[in-house]
Computed example of a mutant assay.
Amino acid sequence: MFFNSTKLMLTNTMMIGVIMTICSNNWVSMWMGMEISLISFIPLMNSNKINSSSESMIKYFIIQSISSTMLLFSVICMLIGVSMMNEIILTTAMMIKMGLVPFHNWILLIIEHLEYSIVLILLTILKLPPISITYQINSKFLLMPIILSLIVSSICCVNQSSIRKTLAYSSIFNMSLMISSINKLSLIISFISVYSINMAFLVMLFSTMKMNFINQILFNEYSTWMKLNIWINMLSMSGFPPTLGFVTKMMVIQEMVKINELILVTIMIMTSLLVLFFYTRLAFSSMMISYSFKKWEFLMKTNSKYFMMMMSILMSPFILTLKMVF
């Protein structure tokens, strides 16, 4: 995404809205923060594909407006005193904003026409406000959406050919893992930090290589280091040991075992195997395919590639140490 003064101002305003929602102690301020981030993010979705981006902007605005209206309606129910109705409506509004199943189709409809930098913002930064609100309401109606999100995202991820939709399904899967441990704030912060790092590295690679579909990974002329970099980061996204993604997933499963959610743990492990199968298949296919390379690629600086690979592998002991401390 090419930054000019307007986009820089919109990005700053969006971050102000996100921080305002996270730091607020009343519902109206939270709603205002989400609206500020919504209005600031919509112009950033504009791209060279005029018709497609306009359609995505309108769809995103309608969906987010519906969830914001439900949030305000739940605040009114809170003032009246209808506790059960308030909790159901508020939980549904946050599920729509996070894109959990069965309210996940809006992400798939708009993500195909967005640039990779906007996809990264949509799947990481803009998930922070609804996660913080979900943490504060501590709803009892999240178990079924979590199970549905785990099953649907893992199955649909195997059958995808678009990289953007694959990232969307992977985001739904990781979001359901995050929400399952919503009572543990330190675990949520660790999980979303590691997930954002992995997503940023993967999006950076796909944007550099200009890949939109999975079959483009198989046929490219990039160096072995670039392919090895994709391989390590894909294994980290899937939760393959000893990468960063495995550590956070293990911490979530450990927390679920502590509170005796054994059925949920079983579903997590089975669906994680599907996601691991998909990413491992992609990683090995990208490494094993024969390709031609240019001689001057040996002279390319590979410091950033080394850094991204080492982050995915060597940061696991550091995260485990932080878990022991906190």
Rank of each mutant, 00 (worst) to 15 (best):
S180C: 06
L205S: 01
I214Y: 04
S180L: 04
F219C: 12
I197W: 01
N198M: 06
A200Q: 09
M175Q: 09
I182T: 09
N183K: 12
K184L: 14
S190N: 15
M209Q: 07
F201A: 03
M175Y: 10
Y195A: 02
I192N: 07
F206P: 02
N215G: 10
M204V: 11
K184D: 15
F213Q: 13
L205Q: 02
M178Y: 03
Q216D: 08
S176P: 00
M209R: 05
Q216A: 08
V203F: 00
S186N: 14
F219E: 12
M211G: 03
E221M: 15
S223G: 09
S176Q: 03
N220R: 07
I189S: 10
M211S: 08
K184M: 15
F219W: 13
F206N: 01
L187Y: 02
M204C: 13
I197G: 02
S193M: 07
N174I: 01
S181P: 04
L177E: 04
F191H: 06
S180G: 06
N174V: 04
N215M: 15
T224G: 11
S207F: 06
I179K: 00
I197C: 06
I197M: 08
S186H: 14
L187I: 05
N212S: 10
S207C: 10
L202E: 01
S186T: 14
S193H: 09
T224C: 14
M209T: 04
I217E: 02
M178F: 08
N198H: 07
L177K: 03
L205W: 01
F201P: 00
I179E: 00
F219Q: 12
F191P: 02
N220I: 11
S180D: 01
N220A: 09
Q216W: 07
I197H: 01
Y195M: 06
T224F: 14
I192T: 07
L185A: 11
N198R: 00
S196D: 06
S190F: 13
I214R: 03
M175A: 11
L187W: 00
F191E: 00
W225R: 10
I182Y: 06
I179Q: 02
S190H: 13
I197N: 03
I182N: 06
Y222H: 10
V194Q: 02
M178T: 08
Y222M: 10
I197K: 05
L185E: 10
N212L: 06
M211P: 02
N212T: 11
